[in-house]
Amino acid sequence: MRSRLFDAAGVACVLALLYLERHLAPVPILVIGTVMALTLLLRRAYPVPVAAAVYGLALVQLAVRPAVRMVDVCVLIAMYSVVKYQKKLLWGIVAGGGAAVGVLIAAVTEWRNHTGSFWIVFSVVGAVTATVWVSAYSVRTRRLYIASLEEERDQLARLIAADERAAIARELHDVIAHSLSVMIVQADGAAYVVETSPAEARQALDTIASTGRTALTDMRRVLAVLRGPAVAPEDRRRPRLADLAESGLALRIEGSAGELGAAEELTVFRIVQESMTNTLRHAGPGASLVVQLERSGNDLLITATDDGTASTGGASDGHGLVGMRERVAMHGGTFAAGPLDGGGWQVRAAIPVSG
C-alpha cells in the first residue's frame, strides 16, 4: 500500500512539472508527457515494458518538438525501476545503455536548436543519468543482500527445528523402548507365575496394560517426526529432576508434578535443564533458579525464574528456546519466555498430562 502511494505521489510530481511548462509545450507534447507519467504506475510490476514504453514516448516527443522537457525525468525513473526490480542485471545494463543513447540524442537535438549547448546537455544530463543508475544499482545490491540474509536465517531456523525434532524423536524412541521393555519383562513374569500366583500375574497384566497405553500415547505424539541415528545404550536412562541437583547452580523446586508419563517427565526435565543452562550462561555469578510445578486441571504448569541481573538471559541464539517450544508443542501445550521487569528471566510452560 505504501509503495502504491509513493508511486502515485511520484507521478503527481511529474505531472506537476509538465503543468509548469505547459505554456512552452503544444498539446501533443502535453498528451505524450501525461501518458509517460501515468505509465510509471506499473513500473514495479512490469519494469522492462514500462521502460520500453517510456523510452519510445520520449523519442516521439523529440520528433514532435525537438527539445528536452522536464517530463523527460520519466526516462530516469523508468531506468531506475529496471535496475532495481528486474531480476536479471542484464536488463538494467540495457536500460542504462538506452538512457545513455537518449542523452546523446537529446544533446544533439539541443545542439541543433541552440548552438554551443551540446556539451552542457551531454555533461549535465549524462552525469545525472549515471548517478541515478549507480544509485539504483546500490539499492538493488542492498535489497538482494538483505533478501539473502533473510533466506539464510529462515533456512537456519528450519535446520535448527529439524535437528531438534530429530533429537526429540530419538529421546521419545528411548521412552517407548523403555515402556516396551517393561511390558516384556512383566509379560515374562506373568507367564512364569500365572499358575502358582494368579494375583501377581494379574498385577503384572495391569502393569502391561497401563504401560502399553502410555507408550501408544507417546507414539502418537511423534508421528511425522523422523528418528535420527540410534542412541547408545548407556544414554537410555530416563532422566529425572533429581538428577539436576549436581549442576553447580542454586536450584529450588517448589510444588510437585505428580505422576507423569515417561514422555511428560522427559519434557519437564528438559525444560528445567535448559532453564538452568540459560541461568548459568547469562544470569551472572551467584544467580539461583526457582522452579514451580503446579497442577491446574489437566495441565501441568511449569515456571522457571532466575534472579540474575541479565535482562536477556534466555535470548542468546534462541536454540534452547526453540527446543523447549518444540517439546511443549508436541504435547499440545503452551510456552512463553522473556525478561522480568525487575531483572532476571522467566520461562513459563503448560503441558497436558494424563495422570
Rank of each mutant, 00 (worst) to 15 (best):
R4H: 03
D7S: 01
V11Y: 01
V14M: 11
A16S: 15
L17I: 10
L18F: 03
Y19I: 08
A25V: 02
I29N: 06
L30G: 11
V35I: 13
L42N: 09
A45Q: 02
Y46F: 14
V48A: 09
A52D: 10
V54C: 07
Y55H: 09
Y55R: 02
G56F: 14
V60E: 08
V64H: 11
R69D: 10
R69M: 10
D72L: 10
A78I: 03
S81M: 07
V83L: 08
V83N: 02
V83Q: 04
Y85I: 02
K87R: 15
I93P: 00
G96D: 04
A100R: 00
V103N: 07
A107Y: 01
E110H: 13
R112Q: 14
W119N: 05
S123N: 04
V124Q: 04
V128F: 14
V128G: 05
W133E: 11
Y137C: 10
V139R: 08
R142T: 08
R143C: 00
Y145N: 14
S148D: 15
S148T: 14
E150Y: 02
L156N: 12
R158N: 01
I160A: 09
I160P: 03
A161G: 07
A162R: 08
A162E: 11
E164L: 11
R165F: 08
A169L: 05
R170T: 13
E171K: 08
A177Y: 04
S179R: 08
M183L: 08
I184F: 11
I184N: 09
A191T: 03
A191Y: 01
Y192K: 15
V194T: 10
S197D: 15
E200M: 09
A201H: 07
R202V: 07
Q203K: 12
I208C: 02
G212M: 12
R213P: 12
T214C: 06
A215H: 01
L216P: 01
T217F: 11
D218Q: 06
A224S: 12
V225R: 05
L226C: 04
P233G: 01
R238Y: 03
L244S: 03
L244M: 03
S247G: 06
S247V: 04
G248C: 08
I253P: 09
I253N: 04
S256M: 03
S256W: 00
G258H: 04
G258Q: 03
L260C: 06
G261A: 10
A263Q: 10
E265I: 04
Q273R: 14
N278S: 09
N278Y: 10
N278W: 02
T279F: 05
R281K: 15
H282Y: 14
G284P: 05
G284K: 10
L289F: 07
Q292H: 14
Q292P: 00
Q292Y: 13
E294H: 07
N298D: 15
N298T: 12
D299E: 15
I302Y: 02
T303W: 00
A304Y: 04
T305F: 05
G308T: 03
G314Q: 06
A315F: 11
A315V: 13
A315W: 09
S316N: 11
S316T: 08
D317V: 04
H319K: 00
G320F: 02
M324Q: 03
M330Q: 10
G332S: 09
G333F: 07
A337T: 02
P339M: 04
Q346D: 00
R348S: 12
A349R: 05
